[in-house]
């Protein structure tokens, strides 16, 4: 692609990559660093990448950068405890509240579960595309997503019961 098309990818995908990175790293500074380094790598290879494949290339780069960061910091999946005063009010709850609950429940998922769900829900990737981005089989992607959905259901049901 041309340098002009590269700049276009920055406008199109920088925010979406940043969101994806924030949900995975749970840290805006780390997410910003990952996105910035991903675009630097992408610029070095931009002449070899077609514009149509730029999005996949960038999300793959961010995904790998996140894995590298985990290995480097030896981080483990931190399960945040649901706040004691957290409750899901179905009657008065808004979509914003449900989104907030989902974000809290999302943090309890494993890295790979969270990643595939984010790619599915945020970016609308097909299972096959997610498999290519994360370098796992399509069957594994479906299993991870099923388990992630089941986990979200359990968390939200528990919240509802406790609330």
């Amino acid at each position: 692609m041309t340098s002009e098309e590269y700049n276009k990818t920055v406008e199109l995908f920088a925010d979406r990559l940043f969101r994806f990175a924030v949900k995975n790293t749970r840290n805006e500074a780390d997410a910003r660093d990952i996105v910035q380094r991903s675009f630097e790598k992408f610029w070095l290879k931009h002449k070899e990448v077609d514009f149509e494949k730029a999005k996949s290339y960038l999300f793959t780069t961010v995904h790998r950068a996140h894995i590298d960061m985990i290995r480097k910091n030896k981080r483990t999946s931190v399960v945040e405890q649901v706040p004691e005063n957290f409750q899901l009010n179905k009657n008065h709850g808004t979509s914003y509240e449900l989104k907030d609950y989902l974000n809290i429940a999302l943090k309890e998922l494993s890295d790979i579960q969270r990643k595939v769900v984010l790619l599915r829900d945020y970016e609308g990737y097909a299972y096959k595309e997610i498999a290519e981005l994360t370098n796992i089989s399509e069957s594994q992607v479906k299993v991870y997503i099923f388990r992630a959905r089941k986990k979200l259901h359990e968390i939200l049901t528990q919240m509802e019961k406790t609330g």
Partner: peptide
Amino acid sequence: EMQLFYLEPEDNLVFEGKEALLQEIT
């Protein structure tokens, strides 16, 4: 009995200073 919950992207999360990522057009 399983309910499917789908995540929605948070539009308030934006990458500040994306101009720094832009390159000179040749």
